[in-house]
């Protein structure tokens, strides 16, 4: 008997994560660990985990991890990468972390074209604190702090931060994907692989936005959550490649 899905070597063995049933973090964690193994980057990997549900990611990842203050992931990643360019630096952030409190850090690290990868988990809600409205929450979406649904008059509109940074010359690779289906998960892995490759080649900033289910705070079953992503969330956040300047940057460098 041969085991077809081998345990990723950079994922700690036999740990049960603290994530809720059906949470997308587990899937993205596995993808990150698998890619570091496949691309042989785990030995120099340095991951910044956010303040949010993924704050305990160091309990699962079996490579070097640092935790950050809320929103400061890309500033810490900048400091580490600049101090030691041999590190393979990933900033793993949620939507509150990256597009609310960390907007300035996100925009400016992207604009500087820092040679780092950002994995951006967008679940349209603040997960860890119990389901409050995020800048990415959809219009009409009911959350703990928008019980009657998000209203543009009061709360403004869903923020498309990946689309914003994709327009920057410093951002080499930006893609939006979802982990709501096996096909989406495959695309997610490809997108993160491309992002990692961007940093390996020293081509600058890369970001992958992952639409990810939060069944607990959406108050849906995991299967229904995936359906909600595919039917509702993608209307606001269309998956697809947002920018890929790798080829032109390769030419520039050659």
């Amino acid at each position: 008997m041969e085991l077809l899905n081998k345990w990723p070597i950079y994922y700690k063995k036999d740990v049960i994560s603290h994530y809720c049933p059906g949470c997308g973090h587990g899937i993205v964690h596995r993808i990150v660990a698998e890619l570091l193994e496949e691309m042989d980057l785990g030995k120099q990997a340095y991951l910044v985990c956010p303040a949010g549900c993924a704050v305990l990611a160091y309990n699962y990842f079996d490579f070097d991890v640092i935790e950050s203050a809320h929103g400061r992931g890309t500033a810490i990643a900048t400091g580490a990468k600049r101090a030691n360019p041999k590190l393979f630096v990933i900033s793993y952030q949620g939507d509150g972390d990256l597009s609310a409190i960390g907007t300035a850090e996100t925009i400016h690290s992207a604009n500087r074209g820092e040679n780092i990868c950002v994995v951006f988990i967008n679940n349209a809600v603040y997960g860890m604190t119990g389901g409050q409205m995020a800048p990415t929450s959809l219009i009409g979406q009911s959350t703990m702090t928008s019980p009657a649904g998000r209203s543009p008059d009061v709360d403004g509109y869903p923020l498309h931060i990946t689309d914003i940074v994709a327009t920057f010359p410093g951002v080499t690779y930006a893609e939006r994907v979802s982990v709501s289906s096996p096909a989406g998960i495959k695309k997610t892995k490809n997108a993160i692989r491309n992002a990692f490759q961007t940093q390996v080649e020293g081509l600058g900033y890369s970001i992958v936005e992952v639409l990810s289910p939060c069944p607990t705070n959406w108050k849906m079953t995991p299967a229904k959550s995936c359906k909600w992503i595919d039917e509702e969330m993608v209307k606001e956040y269309k998956p697809g490649l947002l920018t890929d300047k790798r080829e032109e940057k390769r030419k520039e460098r050659a």
Binding site: Y46, V48, I66, S68, A69, R72, A75, I76, A77, T78, G79, A80, K81, R82, A83, N84, L87, A104, E105, I107, H108
Partner: peptide, 17 residues
């Protein structure tokens, strides 16, 4: 940096290495 907050967090990143 873009702010003092970012600067001190870059310090954290660099110090960690």
């Amino acid at each position: 940096s873009e702010s003092e907050t970012a600067a001190i967090n870059m310090v954290i990143g660099a110090a960690s290495t």
